[in-house]
Computed example of a mutant assay.
Amino acid sequence: MTTAIRRVVVGVSGSPSSLAALRAAVDEARRGPSELWAALAWTPVGGETGYRRAPCPDLLKLWERQACARLRNSFDEAFGGFPGGLVVRPLVIRAEAGRALVDIADRPDDLLVVGAGERGLFARITHGSVSRFCVAHAGCPVLAVPPPALLAQMPLRQRHRLPALPVEAYAGTDVRQ
């Protein structure tokens, strides 16, 4: 006997792979009476250790506002806004992405959806694999969504660039942890 999924947790970063995961998560959430928990995890530039060595609260606030704007922008790029007819709980969390997603999707009847990212040695060396961490450590089912085919057609230098948002986009952000 299978149990109904009550929460679909998806990791969002704004990358093309995470947008594919977001679309898949919305499809999964619509299949049953499920809530969509969209989580964007972020850490200060230079990591937590670097920030402890040279703390700057103003920069910390800016980075958090940027993370909130990236989460909102991801929904705008994928759907033109938050999808209707679905309970969406946006989360912006200051933590390493893999650990944060595993901690959020902590119920056996959750479904964790992550973008699998690019394949290949170069991609594994230059980027930590959040999807591999989640598959290895999650206590719930994990759906690893392959990268969109369009990603392979993009020049290498553009594949991981996040869209630049004007400073005005960060004003008035209200998506919080």
Score class of each variant (00 low, 15 high):
R94F: 02
L62D: 13
R94E: 06
G139S: 01
A105R: 01
E96Q: 04
A105G: 12
P166C: 05
A105M: 04
A138I: 09
I125A: 07
G139C: 01
V135P: 06
E48G: 10
A25Q: 01
G128P: 00
L22M: 13
V9K: 09
A164D: 03
Q66L: 07
A24P: 15
K61F: 04
L165V: 04
Q177M: 06
G117N: 15
L86F: 03
G85H: 15
I93V: 13
I104N: 08
F133M: 14
A25C: 01
F82K: 11
R94C: 03
T173N: 04
A67V: 05
V45H: 10
A54E: 09
R31V: 07
A97V: 02
R72I: 04
G32D: 13
P33K: 07
G84Q: 14
E168M: 01
A100Y: 04
K61H: 07
V142P: 02
L59Q: 08
I104R: 02
H127N: 06
L22D: 15
L162P: 05
P166D: 13
Y170Q: 09
R124D: 09
S17Y: 08
M154Q: 11
H160P: 08
F75K: 07
Q177H: 11
E35H: 00
A95S: 09
A105I: 02
L112H: 07
L60G: 12
P166W: 12
T173K: 05
A78G: 00
S74N: 15
A152K: 11
P166Q: 04
Y170R: 10
A39E: 01
A38E: 06
W63I: 07
C56L: 02
D27F: 02
C68L: 06
D58G: 09
P141V: 08
L19Y: 08
G46N: 02
S13Y: 12
L62H: 04
A29H: 05
G120R: 08
V87T: 11
A29M: 04
S18H: 15
V113I: 09
W37C: 05
R6N: 12
S131H: 12
V12Q: 11
I5S: 07
E77C: 09
V88C: 02
G50A: 14
V88F: 00
G80D: 02
G80M: 01
E48H: 09
G14H: 14
A169P: 05
R70Y: 08
D27S: 10
L162S: 08
H160A: 14
A97R: 09
Q66E: 06
A25Y: 06
V167G: 00
M1W: 06
P147A: 14
Q153K: 13
Q177P: 13
G47H: 07
E168R: 03
A144Y: 03
R70D: 15
G46I: 00
D58S: 04
A171D: 13
S74R: 10
P147I: 02
P141A: 12
G85T: 11
P146D: 12
R23Q: 11
P57H: 12
S18V: 10
R23Y: 10
G32R: 08
R157P: 04
P155I: 05
I93S: 06
E118A: 15
S34M: 00
A123C: 02
E118H: 11
V135H: 15
A152S: 07
D58F: 05
A171M: 12
A105Y: 02
G47D: 08
R6F: 00
P83Y: 10
V167L: 11
V130I: 10
A169G: 03
